[in-house]
């Protein structure tokens, strides 16, 4: 018995990999359909912020992630853009991450068409900028010195979407979706310094780190990982990739708990027998 337990504890980890694969693939083929029962306060705050924007307000949407964390953040960005469009808010999409322009292009090919929005009139996409500090501070002085041309090489000044926009003073806020420290940068360089409202979407790993900013209202709302994304999708009334994603994670989460408990119980049994 003891030897068996010991052998089980030293099981080839490839069996665990296989087990994880099975519990991840199964719900993709057969979704459980169990609905989430709660909404976090920070998600509600994120939703309410966009809901309370006025028609024709101007908002920056930062899409600062690359394909490595796309499954967590792309659903958040898509849902936020849909919500902003529904509120008839003008959107300026920016990025400081080199891997993001391709993902922005993916969003651009679907979301604006669905909402019937026109490029240059309702939204605009700026070119990748390698230095966020420089761009963020520059936009407080003169937006057009930070971004003279959009991602397609068109001159930005004079576009209908930019009407009346010169600095942060003319904007209603920033929605930053990122897995990097870019949200911290928006809070420090823009939110705190120029009194610009900031809301964000981030990976589950980074989510806890924003607690102090949320408590201080330096950050007005936050979506954390797939769960945050799915709760936000539910609030906006359009369930999409985050909702199906969180459904697929049900079994794998249970697996991790079972594995931690099993190994510790085995250790306890072995210790007692000794």
């Amino acid at each position: 018995m003891k030897d068996r337990l010991r052998r089980f504890l030293n099981i080839d980890r490839r069996w665990l990999f296989l087990l994880l694969s099975v519990v991840m693939i199964w719900p993709i083929i057969h979704p459980s359909g169990i609905a989430g029962r709660t909404t976090q306060q920070s998600v509600k705050d994120f939703y309410d912020f966009i809901e309370n924007l006025k028609e024709n307000d101007f908002v920056i949407l930062g899409v600062d992630y690359d394909p490595s964390i796309k499954p967590e953040l792309q659903p958040q960005a898509v849902a936020a853009l849909r919500h902003l469009f529904r509120r008839n808010v003008r959107v300026c999409i920016l990025t400081f991450i080199s891997g993001a322009p391709g993902l922005i292009e993916e969003i651009k090919q679907t979301v604006p068409q669905e909402a019937g929005k026109e490029y240059g009139k309702d939204y605009v996409v700026m070119a990748y900028n390698p230095n966020y500090m420089a761009a963020m501070t520059q936009m407080s002085i003169d937006f057009y010195k930070a971004y003279e041309k959009d991602a397609e090489g068109n001159t930005v000044k004079g576009m209908p979407v930019m009407k009346g926009i010169n600095t942060y003073r003319d904007m209603a806020g920033v929605v930053e979706i990122t897995g990097t420290g870019m949200l911290d940068a928006w809070v420090a360089y823009v939110g705190d310094k120029y009194n610009v409202p900031i809301i964000g979407g981030t990976t589950a790993i980074s989510q806890l780190g924003y607690g102090p900013y949320l408590q201080n209202r330096q950050l007005l709302g936050l979506l954390g990982g797939m769960r945050g994304g799915s709760e936000y999708e539910t609030l906006t009334g359009r369930k999409d990739k985050a909702t199906s994603g969180i459904d697929a994670l049900n079994l794998s989460h249970m697996l991790v708990i079972i594995l931690i408990l099993t190994s510790n119980i085995i250790l306890l049994v072995l210790k007692e027998k000794n």
Partner: peptide, 18 residues
């Protein structure tokens, strides 16, 4: 939360393979 984050990424790949 790291568990959720890592599994989310794996879900993304498996979903694509599907």
């Amino acid at each position: 939360n790291t568990v959720m984050a890592r599994f989310s990424l794996l879900y993304g790949r498996f979903d694509m393979l599907y």
